[in-house]
Write a protein that binds this DNA or RNA. Structure first.
Lengths: 364, 364
DNA sequence: GCTGGCACTCTCTTCTTTCGAGTGCTAATA
DNA sequence: TATTAGCACTCGAAAGAAGAGAGTGCCAGC
C-alpha cells in the first residue's frame, strides 16, 4: 500500500525531528515546522494512521510518536534527503585520509578511527577474506647464525623476518632453500602448505638443521595473518554520548559485543563489488541479538587485488542516516581511489549515492 | 605519626571491605569480620581518629567510612597482603602469553588485551621511546620496475617494503645504492637522516630517478614508527561494569580520555630498569586531570635492546590493588623473559613483588 | 580503656500529588 | 468530504512527604 504524499512528508518530519531531539514527536511540533500547511488536528489523524500502518509507534497513549524500524526503513529508502557534503567537509576528509594513508600499510584501523571521528559513532572496519599467496622468496644471508626471510605476497607487499639461530648454517644451504621455496611454495595458498610439502622440501634441500621448518612456519604465519579477515572497532565510547545508551548496562552490553570484534556484519554477499553503495541495517534487521535495537551503516571499498573491505559505523536506530551515509560513502570512495586499481572517479566528484538494504522487514 | 597496630588492622579491613562491596563500611561490619576482638563502639572511636588523620572519610554524617587516596596509599604501601597467584592462574597466564607471542611481532597490544581480560579493567600498553637505528640495508632487485627494501634494525627485526616504480631502473644503480646506504645510513638515528645526507648520497650514486629519496623516505618512516612510543588502550568498556562509573558522563569522560591514548603515565623516570617493580598511582597522584579520581597500576617489562615497555591498567581508586599488582607483575615478568635478553628468572618463580609509588601526598 | 545503650542524623525508598504535553473525539466549518 | 477548533482525558515525569534503616556520637558503667 502506497503512502500519500502528505503522509510521506509527515513521516519524514517525524523521523527528522526524532533524530534531532531523541524525544517523541508531537503533532504540534510538526504543524509548526513549516512545509505542511495544515493544523495539528489533521496531522494527528494522519499520525494515527501511520501508527496503524506500522511506521510509527507511541511509547504510551499520551506521548508523541517515534519511528518504528519499518518507519526508518521507509525513511532511508525513499524519504531522506541525500546529504551532500560541503566542499569544506570533503576537503577535510580527503586531507585526513591522505594523512592516514601516507604512513605504513596496515592503517585500515586508522581509517576506522577517522570514520568514528567524522560521524561520532563507533566505527568498525573489516578487511576482506582473500586467498593470498607468496609470489617470491628471498633469503638474505647475514652471518653464520642469521638470515632474513623476505616474502613478496600476491598483493605486492613484502613481509620480512630476521631469524637468529643458535647453530651456524652455511650459505649454500640458504641458497638452496631459497630456490626450492621459490619453486614449490609460490602461488599456493595457506591450505596448500602441507606437512608433506614441507618435509619433501626439507629432504630436497638436505636440511638437517630445521631451517625449512622455520621458513615454512613464517610462511604459514604470514599467509594466515594476511588472509584472515580482521575486524577492528574504534570509538566504542562514543556510544555513551547517545541518550539511548545512558543506561550503563545497555551500553556495556553493546560495547563488549563490539569490542569482541567480528560477527557484526551480515553475510555481505549482496555487496555489489563495483559501486559506492552504502548499506543500512536497521534494528531488528541485524542478525546479531545484541544489535537488534541498534543500526549499522556500512560502505564497502575496493581494497585492490580484487578484494573489498568494509567500513561502517554503529549507533542507535535513531541515527543520522543521511549524514552518516554520505560521509561513509565518501570515505569508502576515497579509500577505493587510493587503494584500488585504476579507473576511479576524480577526487572532488561525489554525486551518486546509492543506498540499499533489506526491504522492510515485518514489524515487531 | 605512626599508626597503632590496631588502627592499621582496621584501616586494612575498611579498604578490603570497600574494595569488595563499593559501599561505605560501617563499624559493625568490621567488628564482625573477625581478626579484631573488640566491639563496634571501640572501632567507632578508632574510625573517628582515622578520619581525623586523613586516612578515611565519610560521605555524610551517619554513613560508613570510605578510604581517602591517602588511605589507599597507606594500604598499598604497608597494609595489603601481597597476593600470590595460584598455580592455575600462573599457568593460565603463561599459556595465553605464549599464545599471543607466537604470532607476529607487534602483538604488544594483544598483551594489553590480555591484561585487560585478566584484571577486568581497561589496560594500556606503552612501548618505550628508543633511538632505533638501521643496522643493515638490503635491496633486492626484482625486475626493471620493482625492488624490495629490507631494513635490519638495531633491535634485530627486519622491515621491508616492495617498491614499484613507473620508470625502469638498472640493476647497477640498485647495487650502488645498496652499498652507499649501508655505508652512510647505518647506525644513525632518525634525526641524523638529513636532507643534506640524502642529497649527497643521491649524487654519489649518480641517481637521477629519485630512488634515493624513496629509500630514504622509507628509512625515515620506519625509524619514526619504531622509535615513537605508542600507547594502546583496550577494554575501555570494562569501566562500565564498575559502579563508580555508572554515571555515563563520568564514564564517557574517562573513556574518551583513554581512547585518546598517551598522556596517561607520569614521567616514568623513577622506573628502576631492573626490577619487577609495580607502580601504583592513586587518584590525585595522577597528573592528568581526568585521572584524578581513578587509579593506575603499571608494571614495566624488559623489551629487549635495553629498553623497557610499560603495561598497566586503569580503574576506580577502589581497585583491587593487590590482585591487579600481582597479575601485572607476573605478566611483565613473563614478557621480560620472552622479549628481553638472557638472564631471566625461570618460569614458575614468582615470589618477590615490589610495590612502589609516590609517597602519600597531602590530602585534598 | 573498653563496652552497651540510646538519641540523633541523614540518605534511600516508596507513595502520593501535581503538572503538562499530547492525544482522541466531536461538532462546526469550508 | 476534508479540515479545523475545542475539550475532556490519559499517562508519564517531576516534586513533595513519610517512613525505614544504617550508622554515628556520646555517655555512663564496667
Amino acid at each position: 500500500m502506497e503512502l500519500s504524499d502528505r503522509k510521506k512528508k509527515i513521516l519524514a518530519a517525524v523521523v527528522d525531528e526524532y533524530i534531532r531531539t531523541a524525544e517523541p514527536v508531537g503533532s504540534k511540533a510538526i504543524a509548526q515546522s513549516g512545509s505542511l500547511n495544515c493544523s495539528s488536528a489533521t496531522i494527528r489523524n494522519e499520525l494515527a494512521e501511520l501508527v496503524n500502518m506500522g511506521y510509527l509507534e507511541q511509547p504510551h497513549t499520551s506521548a508523541g510518536r517515534v519511528p518504528t524500524p519499518m518507519g526508518y526503513r521507509m525513511y532511508v529508502n525513499e524519504l531522506m534527503e541525500k546529504q551532500k557534503l560541503s566542499l569544506e567537509e570533503t576537503e577535510e576528509i580527503n586531507r585526513r585520509l591522505n594523512l592516514k594513508l601516507q604512513e605504513l600499510d596496515d592503517t585500515i584501523s586508522d581509517v576506522g578511527r577517522l570514520a568514528s571521528q567524522l560521524t561520532d559513532y563507533p566505527a568498525l572496519t573489516i578487511t576482506a577474506q582473500t586467498a593470498m599467496t607468496v609470489k617470491r622468496f628471498d633469503l638474505i644471508y647475514v652471518d653464520a647464525n642469521t638470515f632474513i626471510i623476505v616474502l613478496t605476497l600476491s598483493n605486492n607487499t613484502a613481509k620480512s623476518k630476521l631469524v637468529h639461530l643458535p647453530i651456524s648454517v652455511d650459505q649454500d644451504l640458504v641458497q638452496r632453500l631459497s630456490s626450492l621455496f621459490n619453486a614449490s611454495f609460490t602461488g599456493i595458498t595457506q591450505e596448500a602448505v602441507t606437512p608433506v610439502l614441507i618435509h619433501s622440501t626439507e629432504r630436497a634441500a638436505d636440511d638437517t638443521m630445521g631451517l625449512t621448518a622455520v621458513i615454512a612456519a613464517f610462511v604459514l604465519e604470514t599467509l594466515h595473518e594476511v588472509s584472515t579477515p580482521t575486524a577492528f572497532v574504534t570509538g566504542e565510547n562514543r556510544l555513551l554520548s547517545q541518550p539511548e545508551f545512558r543506561d550503563p548496562d545497555k551500553a556495556h552490553k553493546l560495547m563488549s559485543y563490539l569490542s569482541g570484534g567480528g560477527h557484526i556484519l551480515p553475510p555481505s554477499e549482496g555487496m555489489a563489488p563495483g559501486s559506492d553503495e552504502v548499506r543500512v541495517l536497521i534494528g531488528p534487521e541485524n542478525v546479531a541479538e545484541e544489535l537488534k535495537d541498534s543500526s549499522v551503516v556500512i560502505a564497502s571499498y575496493d581494497a585492490g587485488d580484487n578484494t573489498r573491505g568494509l567500513i561502517g559505523v554503529v549507533g542507535p536506530t535513531r541515527m543520522d542516516y543521511s549524514t552518516v551515509a554520505a560521509k561513509l560513502s565518501f570515505l569508502a570512495a576515497g579509500l577505493s581511489r587510493r587503494l584500488g586499481g585504476g579507473e576511479a572517479p576524480p577526487e572532488g566528484m561525489h554525486n551518486k549515492l546509492i543506498i540499499k538494504g533489506d526491504t522492510g522487514n515485518e514489524r515487531r
